[in-house]
Nucleic acid binder design. Structure first.
Lengths: 97, 97
DNA sequence: TATGACTTGTCAATATTTGGCTAATATAAG
DNA sequence: CTTATATTAGCCAAATATTGACAAGTCATA
């Protein structure tokens, strides 16, 4: 489940149209469509606005949005999983220190 | 241990100078210095060249280089670890499918 | 002081990202 | 079949980020 899929689910379950959310984000409908399909990446502040508009958890959407970017970064890399492990260790290290 | 630290270790243990490696990469010494200190990010093909010049494992360096970028992407995000988990799951999913 | 290795700060060139526009497609109603 | 509305596709310009070069600085040592 990527970010776009999730916001589409939420949007449709609430009977909202792309153009309504797009208007609130001050972008046009084609751009919003691209974000939902994962063709374009939302900006961080757009994620927060979307969470507000869809009355959902900011944390969940931010996590999906970040995960999309991580996946994008490591796709086609043989060392993808190894790199994730290293990053995780380093972050944990930093947190406990 | 980030990418720059590792290549500095390797370079110094082999008695090489920044300007020697920089010349081989066709960048100037200040740029190489910045890469070692993590102030600038190497490009992927530079990572491979560096591995060759330092006679070391491409995989190890690529993993560190990717990990740096992942960390950069998620620093200051509360959902960093959660996002890493999601990305890991999705990648494993894709691999087994 | 003088030299060599490395670092810092700034700038221009380049590349990437973002968003808007127009047109195309799909779906549903009359 | 036509119309109306929603969504998607493709292209282009504006904004932003990245890359590398250059000049000047620090630091250590002879």
């Amino acid at each position: 489940m990527h970010f776009g899929e999730r916001i589409r689910e939420l949007r449709e379950s609430q009977g909202l149209l792309q153009r309504q959310l797009a208007a609130n984000l001050e972008i046009d409908t084609p751009m919003f469509s691209k974000i939902e399909r994962g063709e374009r990446k939302a900006k961080r502040d757009q994620v927060l606005k979307i969470a507000g508009l869809l009355k959902t958890n900011e944390q969940e959407l931010l996590a999906l949005w970040l995960a999309d970017q991580i996946k994008e970064l490591v796709t086609d890399e043989d060392q993808a999983l190894q790199a994730l492990k290293i990053a995780e260790q380093d972050i944990n290290q930093a947190n406990t220190k």
